[in-house]
Computed example of a mutant assay.
Amino acid sequence: MNLRDNTNKKTMKYYSNTSQFILLYFKSILLTIVTFGLYYPWAKVALLKFHCRSTILQENSFNFVGTAKDVFKSYLILLVIIAITFLFLFTSFIAPNNRLYPFLFAISYFIFISIIPMVIHGTLKYRAKNTLWKGIQFHYLGSKSELYWKFLSGLLTTFLTLGIYTPWFFTELRKYIISHLRFGNLSFEFKGEGAQLFWIQIKFIFLFPSTFGIYSFWFIKELLQFYINNIEVNQNEIKTRFQLDVRTGDIFRLTIINFALIIFSFGLAMPFVILRTYKALASFIQIEDSIQINKIQQANYKTTSKDDFLDLKLV
Rank of each mutant, 00 (worst) to 15 (best):
P96K: 04
C52M: 13
M12T: 07
L244T: 00
F309Q: 00
G192K: 04
Q286L: 10
V80E: 03
L224E: 13
I82W: 07
D245Y: 08
G184W: 01
Y301L: 03
L104T: 03
L89C: 08
I81F: 09
K144L: 14
F284H: 07
S305N: 15
F252Y: 11
S290T: 11
L155R: 09
G184T: 09
K9A: 09
F169M: 05
T85C: 09
E172I: 07
F226T: 07
A83S: 14
F266Y: 10
I205R: 11
Y126R: 05
R276P: 08
S305K: 15
N60A: 15
N294Q: 08
S108M: 09
I94W: 06
L89A: 14
S74G: 14
R4Y: 14
Y148H: 09
L207T: 08
G192V: 02
Y40K: 13
T240C: 14
E189G: 01
F272W: 15
I256T: 09
I214V: 14
Q58C: 08
Q201K: 10
A83H: 05
S187E: 11
I293K: 02
W42Q: 07
Y14V: 00
R127Y: 14
R247P: 07
P41V: 05
D289K: 08
F206N: 05
E189A: 14
W149R: 07
S19E: 14
T85K: 00
I293F: 04
K191H: 12
I293R: 02
F112V: 06
F103E: 06
L30I: 10
T161V: 02
V34C: 12
I22L: 04
F190A: 00
Y15I: 15
A106V: 08
W168P: 11
T18Q: 13
K144I: 10
T55N: 07
K27W: 10
P41L: 03
F105S: 11
F112S: 15
I293E: 02
I178P: 06
K144G: 10
Q137H: 13
S92N: 03
N98M: 07
L197Y: 08
G163N: 01
Q297S: 13
S216W: 15
N234F: 10
P41K: 11
K306I: 12
L38K: 01
